[in-house]
Every structure is written in C-alpha cells, then in structure tokens.
C-alpha cells in the first residue's frame, strides 16, 4: 500500500512537470504580454518604455529560457512575482487557496448529502412517479449552464428578495468574531455553493441510482432477501455499501469538474478563490500567477484521485496493491 502511494506520487509529479511545460508553452502562444497590456490602458507609454520594460522583465527571451528561469525560482521556493499586482504571488494566492477549498468541499459535501439519499430512494422506488421526477431533476442538473443558474440565483435571492449578498467573499469593514464571523462567511457561500453543487447532484444521483439498481438485482441481494433478512438491513448494510464503491471513483473524477465550475462560479460571484485568479491571470497574461494557480488546481485534482484510490482500498478489502 505504502509503496503504491509513493509510486502514484512519483507519477503525479512527473505528469505535473510535463504539464507545467506544456501549459507554459501554450501561455506563450497567447498574443501579447503584460507590457503590451500596459500600452492598452495608457496612451502615454512610448515604444521605448515598452522595450525597456520587456527586457527588464525578461520577456524578450525565448519561451524555453523563460520556462527554465521560472522553474528555477519555483524550485528555490519562490513562487515568483505577479506582473498584474506587482507583489509576490504567494501573497495573492495564499488566502485564495483556502477560499476555494471551502467552496469546493462544501459543494462536494452538499451534493453528496443530497444526491446519495435521493439516488437510493429512486433506485428503491424504481419506475414510480418519484423516480421519474428525480430522474428529471438529475438531468436538469447536468444540463443547466451553471453560470446562468448563478445569475438567476443572484437575481432571485440577492436582488429581488434581498436575503443573501450578491457577491463577494465576506463582509468588508466589520470586525466580526466567533459565530458571527462563521455565519458571515456562510452567507457569502450559500449561493456559490448552490450553483456549483447543482450539476454534481445530478451526476451523483444518477450514479448512486445506477449502482444501487445493479446491486439490488444481483444474486447476492436476492439471497440475502430470501434468507428473510429485514429489508432495511438489506438495503443499507449490504446494498448501499457495495454501491458506494463505484461512487467513490465518480467523486474523485468530479473534483476536476468542481474545479472547472469554481472558475465560473467564483467569477460570477466575485468570490476570491484560485479559480477566479486562474481566469483573471490568464486574461491579463500574468504568467506567474496563472502557472502557480494552474499547478495548484492540478495538485488538488491529483491528490483527490489518490485519496479516492486509498479510500477505495479501505472500503473494498478485495482490492490489493
């Protein structure tokens, strides 16, 4: 088991390294650079100014050299300097990682809490009206554009009803403590978490239902039932536990979807997370921030899939590494 984890970590590291180069290279293919951006906002900048800044920033060097430079500073523990904000990258991204972590974990937990019971219920009541309606609900979740949903949620709950804030991360300028602080953070999380979970709820519900159905139809459950075991016991002790296993894989894969979704959700809700900084930095050509946020998101996704595999092994003792 331990060896397996080490092996997986090494593989992930290698993939990360490879991806970092590909991403860096693709970023250099993007038109313009941070200095060009300055010219766009400021008509007084002369070509001499631009030339001077480009050589100061090392932007006049070929892509591979810039990549090596970047890798060098990264390995020395320096995440680099943001060209947009003109401060160290670590200062920007530090708090944002935590914010995104809250957002995605809450969204994941919420969608599982809603989807799994619904999926089990639908499987047990297969063919009934509730199953039908739940199926409709699940498909709606998968098919709805999340940014659109986010806008509608803002329109309904923030603007029309005035119940929740329309965007932001927390109330600015209030010194809150204890429960008030927690509640304040939660208030700002409700709408983003809702819009982010909706799609996952659909996916998870369908998988739970499918897995449950397969197991309920299996010989093993039939045997259990024929033995005269209590239906509740059959469902939860035998069927549900076995259905959990395929769900874990889905959850692990879904983490990358949640992260993609977070980019849009954070952008619409002006929520200070890594997802938003991925988008902002790519748009403003802020290489260092883009690369670091990109790597962070990859690492998060890799870690989740590794965790899922370990969890898999714990739940299903048949699997040996």
């Amino acid at each position: 088991m331990f060896q397996y984890i080490i092996k997986r970590l090494m593989q992930s590291l290698l993939t990360l390294l490879l991806l970092s180069f590909v991403c860096y290279f693709v970023l250099t293919l993007m038109p313009g650079d941070p200095v060009d951006m300055m010219a766009a906002g400021n008509p007084n900048i002369t070509s001499e100014d631009m030339q001077r800044l480009k050589s100061l920033y090392g932007l006049d060097q070929p892509a591979y050299k810039r990549y090596l430079n970047w890798m060098g500073t990264l390995l020395s523990g320096d995440l680099g300097f943001s060209r947009t904000y003109k401060i160290p990258v670590s200062d920007i991204l530090g708090p944002r990682i935590l914010n995104t972590f809250y957002l995605s974990v809450f969204a994941l937990v919420l969608s599982l809490l809603v989807a799994v019971p619904l999926g089990v219920y639908a499987a047990v009541h297969k063919g009934k009206l509730t199953d039908y309606l739940l199926n409709l609900f699940a498909f709606a979740g998968i098919s709805i554009p999340s940014f659109w949903l986010a806008l509608i949620l803002i329109l309904m709950f923030a603007v029309k009803a005035g119940l929740l804030p329309a965007g932001g991360t927390y109330s600015v300028g209030q010194d809150l403590e204890g429960f008030a602080l927690v509640w304040d953070r939660i208030k700002y999380l409700i709408l983003p978490v809702l819009s982010l979970s909706f799609m996952q709820i659909g996916t998870f519900e369908r998988y739970t239902r499918g897995a449950m159905l397969e197991i309920l139809n299996s010989d093993y459950i039939r045997t259990a039932r024929s033995k005269g075991l209590e239906e509740k016991k059959v469902l939860f002790k035998h069927a549900f536990r076995n259905a959990l296993i395929p769900l874990i894989t889905v959850v692990a894969i879904s983490f990358s979807y949640i992260f993609s979704g977070a980019i849009i959700t954070e952008t619409v809700f002006a929520y200070q997370g890594v997802g938003k900084s991925v988008y902002d930095s790519i748009k403003s050509n802020d290489f260092n921030v883009a690369m670091v946020s990109f790597m962070i998101s990859m690492i998060m996704v890799f870690m989740m899939s590794l965790l899922a595999d370990i969890f898999y092994a714990v739940v299903d003792p048949r699997i040996k590494y």
Partner: peptide, 21 residues
C-alpha cells in the same frame, strides 16, 4: 491524465490563442 485535468483552465488558455497565426 487528460481526463483528470480540470478542463476549463485549459480551454481558457487554448481559446486565447490566435489560431490565424
């Protein structure tokens, strides 16, 4: 590994490239 990647950041980067070049 492509499946495991978060798609949207990649799409954003690729969509920003000028393909006529």
């Amino acid at each position: 590994s492509l499946l495991a990647l978060p798609q949207l950041p990649l799409l954003i980067v690729f969509a920003a490239i000028d393909i006529t070049k």
